[in-house]
């Protein structure tokens, strides 16, 4: 029997050739309906996105949010424009939105749509390092900006593009975030 589209979950060919394919080419393949390309993109970026989402949300839902990020990347692939930046920045932009929505409890509804059942794993307060607690002490707006710029190494312009805010706002938030972090780390309180 012939199905119109074959599931490509375990097709090994692309995975083996993966190192040669750019992220941009993978997104282009996703547009053609090649799901395995999404898998390669996942292999390259899922861990970083998991770390990022853990840092900016601190709700223990990072794994869930990673899934929603990639599901959304899959559905938005045909709207990706390589002239506007790297796929990595595009993925972090999606993840940032997903994190914001999570804060507004919208992801709880979206989760039902995607029929995902993932038990949230919360991070023990006692195992947190000073740096993590310092980051937790920031407002989400400041935390997202400082993590994107200082941890993920995006330029202020890339951060502004991702968050769709003026670059001056990025500078201002970074400035205040650094001040708060330094105060927290030096004195143990912001």
């Amino acid at each position: 029997m012939e199905r119109p589209v074959k599931p490509l979950v375990n097709r090994p060919v692309l995975a083996r050739r993966a190192p040669e394919i750019s992220d941009g080419a993978l997104v282009a393949r996703m547009c053609e309906g090649d799901t395995s390309a999404l898998g390669v993109l996942y292999d390259r970026h899922a861990k970083a996105l998991y770390t990022f989402l853990s840092r900016v949300t601190s709700t223990g839902e990072a794994e869930d949010l990673v899934q929603i990020t990639f599901m959304r990347a899959g559905s938005l692939a045909d709207r990706f424009d390589p002239a506007r930046g790297e796929p990595r920045a595009w993925l972090f932009g999606i993840a940032t939105r997903v994190a914001q929505e999570s804060r507004r409890s919208i992801v709880r509804k979206a989760r039902a749509v995607f029929r995902s059942i993932v038990a949230p794993v919360s991070i023990q307060e006692s195992t947190k390092t000073d740096v993590v607690r310092a980051l937790d002490s920031l407002s989400e707006a400041k935390r997202v900006v400082v993590v994107l710029a200082e941890v993920e190494g995006f330029s202020c312009q890339e951060v502004a593009d991702m968050l769709e805010i003026p670059i001056g706002t990025v500078w201002t938030r970074l400035h205040h975030a650094r001040g708060d972090l330094r105060a927290f780390l030096e004195r143990g309180a912001p």
Partner: peptide, 20 residues
């Protein structure tokens, strides 16, 4: 970053691709 075990990563990968 927080630890994310390889099995959980793989499991999630399967879910993402199956969903897509």
């Amino acid at each position: 970053g927080p630890a994310w075990d390889a099995l959980a990563q793989k499991r999630l990968r399967g879910k993402v691709l199956a969903g897509a």
